[in-house]
Every structure is written in structure tokens, then in C-alpha cells.
Amino acid sequence: MRGLLALELSSDPCSLALLCEDGRRLTRSFVGERGRALLHEIDTLFKDAQLEPSQLAGVIVGVGPGSYTGLRIACTAARTLAYALHVPTGGISSFDAAMEDGVETHIVLDAYRGEVYHGVGIAEQNHVTIMQTPRVCTIEELRPRLADKKVICDARLFDALADFDPASYTPTAARLLQLACARGVSIDGHGIDALNPAEPLYLRAAAFRPNT
């Protein structure tokens, strides 16, 4: 018996999902304290599934955009578990895991410094077509594009985007697993290598010089 693990820590609530060889799907979620909680949650998930760490088949991680700290914790865990247990790891955009079915969806997250992360796509069951890869822009330049569109945003932007009746942004690890399987990942981990690397989607330089 083996299990595929998915981690989504780019925003709150964070979530984990485990797909077992016998078809069982187990999930857990938690809020905040990602660094403190993650491995404890993984341990609990495996115990609930009655799996040993050595039965891990692969790790899929949501690579953002989102909390840099959350992404680094998730990617560090994914890469280290992959190394320690000789299993593959790969990433999927967290935006992919939040696209709505059958409708052009604009995802807008607060990127601080007066900017937002913005991406556009459409899901058809477990396939996602990306129409705008995630980028950084301002709400002002984005507004004209959002009229009559499905808008999903994080809680910090609800007021600013109230005109567009936004829905809540909730990418989940369970959805990452669905997408991974649709992209050819099998329960024994084959196909994970063909996903994106387990590397945070930062979208911004690590350091910048303020304009003077």
C-alpha cells in the first residue's frame, strides 16, 4: 500500500491530502503556524491512513502564488521528503487548484505594496486552461478586466473588489491531487517528474531598491 501526498500552504486555511492505493482520500486542514504544524499534520494524516512514512509514493505541492513563507515551508518539506524516501516531487500552481468549473475565473490576491497577484483560467472538470499566467499588477489596472467576470480573491481584498461580488480563494490539497492525476500522475508517483518543479512561484525579486 502506498500513498500520494499533496501540500497546499500558499494561503489560509492550509491543507494536506493523501490518496491511498486502495482509493481512500484523506484530508486535513489547519490555519496559521505552518512551520510548527506541517510535519505533525503529515504524521497524523499517515497515522489516520495507517501508512508508514516509507509508504510515501510522491509529494505534490502547491507552488503559489501566495505566502512566501508558506510556499518555502511546503517546498522544503516536499523536497526533503522526496530526498529522504527516494520518491519524486513536483509542483502545481495554486491558482490552478482554485479555478472555477466552466467559467473564466480571475483570481486576485493581495501581494502587498499596493499590488496584487492576478491570474486567469477556466476549469473543465480536472483540466485547467490558463488564459493569463500569474503576474503582479495593481488593482486599478485590473478593474476594467474584471467586469462581468467570475472573481475570486482573498479576504483582504473583499472590500476593494466588492463591486465584482468576489468568491473566496480556497485552493486545496485535495484539488491538487485531482489535477495531478488528470495530468498523468499515478498512485506510485510516476508522472510527478513531468509536473513543474517544487519551487515557489515568487513573481517578485527577492530584494529591490526603493525609488528615491
Binding site: G35, L39, I42, P53, R72, I73, T76, A77, L85
Partner: peptide, 20 residues
């Protein structure tokens, strides 16, 4: 630095769990 410490501690916890 919290962000730096978190990388090392997450790696250590992952190894401790994986290798028991």
C-alpha cells in the same frame, strides 16, 4: 531570521519523520 530558521527546521523535521 524566522524565514531562514523555518527552512532548516522543516527539513530536519521532515528527515526525523521520514527516517523515524
Amino acid at each position: 531570521l524566522l524565514g531562514s530558521l523555518l527552512v532548516g527546521v522543516t527539513a530536519a523535521k521532515s528527515l526525523a519523520w521520514a527516517w523515524q
